[in-house]
Each structure stands twice: as structure tokens, then as C-alpha cells.
Design a protein around this nucleic acid. Structure first.
Length: 441
DNA sequence: GCGATCAGAT
DNA sequence: CACATCTGATCGC
């Protein structure tokens, strides 16, 4: 959101106050060490991580705010010609996404708005119940005029279990391969609880790459994570270095299983269709109950039956995908909208080609009017704002873009060898361990 | 040369 | 598909 007064996860000119929901890169585009456009509000945890993400950033711009408190700000009102002041109140709320992630509830002359940032709404966890009470309490007697919603999985086909259930699946996969190395794909922030759970249940340390260990230390984790490969067979590696190619390379040296925790349904099979056919079938997946059994992991409790959830999948000979997501699934989004009954909803994800306007599915749940599917465009069709964007683009591009594209392709061909080598070196450094120096214990 | 932005990759 | 990330190329100053 970007108004004349405030911006949430937008860092351009023209706002008087800036709000950061969390430190994932897609929410910090435009932030840089030299950024100094105004006060930047963020959670305490984000503030702790901030210097490592933006070394040299002027930290005096940061305004640390805590979940559950109301804050007020005095801003210049853009609506009146004279520079009159207007007051804005806001409350940060736990977003249950990655460490430090918050939502922001605003009240001001523009009405009442909630910005979820990226969030997960698992209503059954204790932490979520507290968050729910806090939110309902803050919203009592006020109608929510606008909900800016994390619409990443805003489609009924996105259905997955709680992170607790998914974490059990991950542990069981690892336990069923007692002699294998395990690599788990993670990002620069997020999924720490999954790793901590694995560590606790299996009584094993988790390897992470050096920068990630720094982050873990800043987050207060002490003895769970290590950068010494000899101490553990379980490694968390960057998602961008996790691929079929990587796993195949690792398996030349040591038997290794890759686990991809993701809310995305990786239904498409690759690799010539030999998915699910490799070796003896160690894991049996029960799709009806989202429970499963393994011949090696025996101590686990049965997973909660959840008819709507996906189970993990054997995506490839060496790779499992597990539906562990830090974003809300469709059912959770629906619960959230039903609870808040906002007058209007806008998705925060608008660039992705498959993103969906939440009003298509949730319009009928909104507090006003008779918004319905009929009034809102179907998923996948082009919206007015996209058409505008396309028009602006093509008018500035003025027809020579195809020529440019061709040139780029030529250069790319030339550069391929170099690119490949660099990226393999990087993967080695970051723990993909394609070389054996590090590999033998 | 530097930062911002885009395209392409996993 | 693209959750988030990185890299290299390109654009604009």
C-alpha cells in the first residue's frame, strides 16, 4: 500500500512513514543501505536482523514497535491544501510468517485498514489464538474498511495441513532414511521452527551455511545449528541451490535425500516419469487421511486426519516435497475474511501471472454490498490495472524490445559456461557439497 | 561507475 | 505453477 502519507513494504518517494512487515527480499525491494526517506517502523526482531541485511543502513531511522500495542503518529494531511496535521493510529500484530513478521492495523482519516503482509492463519495453535483475540479486540466496534491480504494461495486448490502436521512428516521422512544425508531447502529467513523441531525430535544438530548461522544466532538460537558438516547428516541449504541436478550430484558421493518444504503443489512430474518408482518403497503415503507409515520411523504419533490436506510427495527419486508453508492456505484465508468481514479486499501479490483478486472468492463475505463472483473477474484474466501497466510498458518500449531480447539471448549463449561454473562453486560453498573435501566424516 | 530494474534461473 | 532468492544484463543518471 502506498498513500500520500504512509507506505507498507514500499520504499519509494512520497510517504511520511514507512512500515516493514518482514525482511524477505520481495518485501524490501527498494530498500538499500543508502535509503533514508523517512522513519521506518518494524518489529523488534526485524530491527535485530536489519543491519545484517543492509550493512551500513542508518539505524537511527528505525522505529521499533511491539505486537499488541497501539501507536500514534502525527502526519501532514494531504487532503487539505494547508499543512494541517492528521493523526494515525496503528497496531502491529503477529503474522505467524517468518521471524519478526507482523501485520499492521491502521486507523486514521482514511478509515480502518489491515495489512497482513505475508501471514499464516492457523487458528488452532495457541499462538494464533492469542493473535486472534488481539485482532478481534483491536477491531471491536470498528468496521474494517480495507483488508490488504496475502493472496499467495488464494485459490481453493491450495489446501495443506498445519505446519505441525507437515513438520511431523518431515521428521518421519528423515527417520526413515537413517543412513542417508538429508538436505532441506530453506530461504534466508523462515522455517526455523521446522528445523528446531527436527533437531529436538531426532536429537541432531542442523547444518546451515555461514550467513544463515549468523542469522540463527541473531534470532537467539545457540546450540542447535552448526556449520561443521562432520557433526550432522541433516543440512539446510538455500532453496535456489536445491534442484534435481544438485541432488543427483550429491548422490554420486553419498546417498542423499532432499526435502522441499513448500505450500506449492508440485504435482508435475519430471525426470522421465520415474517418480515414485525408485528402489524399495520406504514410505507409504495415505492420501485419504494425510497420515502415512514408514518402516523405519515407528515412534511417531499418528498424524491428525485432515481430509483437505495434501500429503508429502515423492517428487523425484531423491526428493520429497512436504506441504510446510508459512503462507495461509485457502481455507485459512477464507476463515480470516469471514472473521473480519472487511468492506473491501485487495491482494498484496499482484505481479505473479497466476495471482487472484481475493474479491473473486471472498467478495460475497465482505461487509458491504452484494459483491459476488459475477462482479469480479475470474482468476487468470487480466484486470484493469494490469492492462494499464501493459499499456505504459509498450508505449515506452516503442517496438524495439524484440531486437533487444534477441541480443540478450545471444549473449546468454555465450555466457552459459561461465554462469554454470560460478553457480556450482557457489553451491559448494553454501553446502550443496558437490565436492568431497567436506563430505567424508 | 553505481543503483535500480528486468529477465532468467532454481 | 514460482513460496524467495540470486545472478547477470541493461537502463538511467
Amino acid at each position: 500500500m502506498e498513500s500520500g502519507m504512509i507506505s507498507v513494504d514500499r520504499w519509494g518517494n512520497g510517504s511520511q512513514a514507512y512500515f516493514l512487515t518482514h525482511l524477505h527480499a520481495d518485501h524490501t525491494h527498494g530498500l538499500s543501505p543508502s535509503w533514508r526517506r523517512g522513519p521506518l517502523f518494524c518489529s523488534r526482531v526485524s530491527a535485530i536482523l536489519f543491519p545484517s541485511k543492509f550493512p551500513g543502513f542508518d539505524l537511527s531511522l528505525l522505529r521499533v514497535v511491539d505486537v499488541g500495542n497501539w501507536y500514534s503518529l502525527s502526519l501532514l494531511s494531504p487532503s487539505s491544501a494547508s499543512a494541517s496535521a492528521t493523526h494515525l493510529h496503528f497496531m502491529p500484530l503477529d503474522a505467524h510468517h517468518c521471524p519478526g513478521a507482523v501485520m499492521y492495523l491502521f486507523r486514521g482519516e482514511f478509515g480502518c485498514q489491515l495489512h497482513t503482509g505475508d501471514f499464516r492463519w492457523e487458528e488452532r495453535s495457541d499462538r494464533a489464538l492469542i493473535g486472534r483475540e488481539m485482532l478481534l479486540n483491536a477491531l471491536k466496534d470498528v468496521k474494517l474498511d480495507f483488508l490488504y491480504l496475502d493472496n499467495t494461495y488464494c485459490n481453493p486448490s491450495y489446501s495443506f495441513p498445519s505446519r505441525e502436521v507437515a513438520a511431523r512428516q518431515v521428521v518421519n521422512i528423515i527417520a526413515s532414511y537413517p543412513k542417508h544425508d538429508i538436505v532441506i531447502a530453506i530461504d534466508s529467513l523462515g522455517k526455523e521452527n521446522l528445523l528446531v523441531y527436527i533437531s529436538r525430535v531426532l536429537k541432531i544438530k542442523i547444518w546451515v551455511w555461514p550467513e544463515r548461522l549468523q542469522t540463527m544466532h541473531l534470532l537467539g538460537f545457540r546450540d542447535i545449528f552448526t556449520t561443521k558438516t562432520s557433526l550432522t547428516r541433516v543440512r539446510a541449504i538455500p532453496r535456489y541451490s536445491f534442484s534435481i541436478e544438485t541432488l543427483e550430484a550429491l548422490n554420486i558421493r553419498r546417498p542423499t535425500i532432499g526435502i522441499m518444504p513448500s505450500g506449492l503443489p508440485w504435482l508435475v512430474k519430471k525426470d522421465g516419469g520415474n517418480t515414485n518408482t525408485f528402489g524399495s518403497s520406504r514410505l507409504v503415503c495415505n492420501h485419504d487421511e494425510s497420515s502415512w507409515h514408514s518402516d523405519a520411523a515407528t515412534s511417531s504419533k499418528p498424524s491428525c486426519p485432515n481430509k483437505d490436506s495434501n500429503t508429502f510427495e515423492r517428487y523425484h527419486q531423491y526428493i520429497y516435497t512436504v506441504p510446510y508453508s508459512d503462507h495461509s492456505c485457502f481455507a485459512e484465508l477464507q476463515d480470516f475474511v469471514k472473521l473480519l468481514k472487511p468492506v473491501n479486499i485487495k491482494g498484496i501479490v499482484t505481479k505473479a501471472p497466476c495471482c487472484i483478486n481475493p474479491m473473486y472468492y471472498f467478495g460475497h463475505l465482505c461487509g458491504t454490498k452484494q459483491a459476488s463472483k459475477v462482479l469480479h473477474q475470474k482468476p487468470g484474466t487480466i484486470r484493469i490495472d494490469r492492462i494499464e501497466a501493459a499499456r505504459i510498458k509498450s508505449s515506452t518500449g516503442s517496438g524495439d524490445s524484440r531486437v533487444k531480447r534477441k541480443k540478450s539471448v545471444k549473449k546468454l549463449e555465450h555466457a552459459t559456461v561461465h554462469v554454470g561454473r560460478v553457480s556450482i562453486l557457489r553451491r559448494v560453498r553454501r553446502g550443496a557439497k558437490i565436492l568431497d573435501t567436506d563430505c567424508i566424516d
